[in-house]
Amino acid sequence: MKLFRTMAMLVAAIGITTTTAAPAMADTGVIATYHGKRIDLSKGWQGAQACAEFAVGDVRCYDTAAEADMATRPAGEVAAKGMWDCPGTWVCLWQDENYTGRRLQWSAAGTKKLANWDFRDKTTSVFLNRVQRGMEAVNYRTLGLDDHSFYCASCAYDNLAASGWNDKIDEVKI
């Protein structure tokens, strides 16, 4: 009986050890410049409606999409509304359908974890306004394998609900 009790305590101790492992390091939010101040996008956009990553580590936010357009387009180029708000060579995500709502955009390639940008599970419209390199979207799953969806270069998606991906993108690889 004593041996059984000792074995039971050992099994319980091992079980506790495997279920209480240290949590993985959390990613930090993306730091952006907005009205001359540095903000952590993972904690909210502080009123900004458009944020753009010009290069890795150079993220700027704007009150309106029009302000972002002026900053991201060559001088003299006029932006149209809708998906054409997304400048050439950029990848743009919108929070709402038909290319409306908050807009997040990148010109720099890489993996973007959308929680760090306060955009996880918030994408409804996508436009890849460039001729090369598409985008891979990832939906993290609690059980099983993550879902992946691929978007082609020079393609526009006005409402991801049709594909079952509305408000499900957690990470993009561009």
Rank of each mutant, 00 (worst) to 15 (best):
K2M: 04
K2S: 04
L3N: 13
F4W: 05
F4H: 03
T6V: 14
A8V: 07
L10R: 09
G15A: 14
I16L: 15
I16W: 14
T19I: 13
M25G: 11
A26V: 15
A26R: 15
G29I: 05
G29K: 14
G29S: 10
V30Q: 10
V30F: 00
A32P: 08
A32D: 10
A32T: 10
G36N: 03
D40Y: 13
L41E: 01
K43Q: 15
K43Y: 07
Q46H: 14
A52F: 06
A52N: 05
A55Q: 14
A55C: 00
V56H: 01
V56Q: 12
G57V: 06
V59I: 05
R60C: 04
R60N: 09
Y62V: 01
Y62N: 01
D63N: 15
A65F: 03
A65L: 12
A66S: 12
E67S: 15
E67T: 08
A68E: 06
D69T: 10
T72R: 12
E77G: 03
V78Y: 07
V78Q: 13
V78R: 14
A79F: 04
A80S: 13
D85C: 06
P87M: 05
G88L: 10
G88A: 14
G88F: 11
T89H: 11
V91H: 04
V91G: 04
Q95I: 06
G101Y: 10
R102D: 05
R102E: 10
L104I: 13
Q105T: 10
S107R: 13
A109F: 11
T111H: 00
K112L: 00
A115R: 08
A115G: 10
F119N: 06
D121L: 12
K122G: 03
K122F: 07
T124H: 08
V126F: 06
N129A: 00
R130G: 08
R130E: 03
R133F: 09
G134N: 03
G134S: 00
M135H: 08
E136F: 05
V138G: 02
T142W: 06
L143Y: 14
L143V: 13
G144M: 09
D146I: 09
D147K: 12
S149P: 00
F150D: 13
Y151E: 01
C152V: 07
A153Q: 15
S154H: 05
S154E: 00
C155T: 14
C155V: 09
Y157A: 04
D158C: 02
D158G: 02
A161L: 01
A161H: 01
S163H: 06
W165G: 01
N166F: 03
D167V: 08
V172C: 05
V172M: 12
I174V: 13
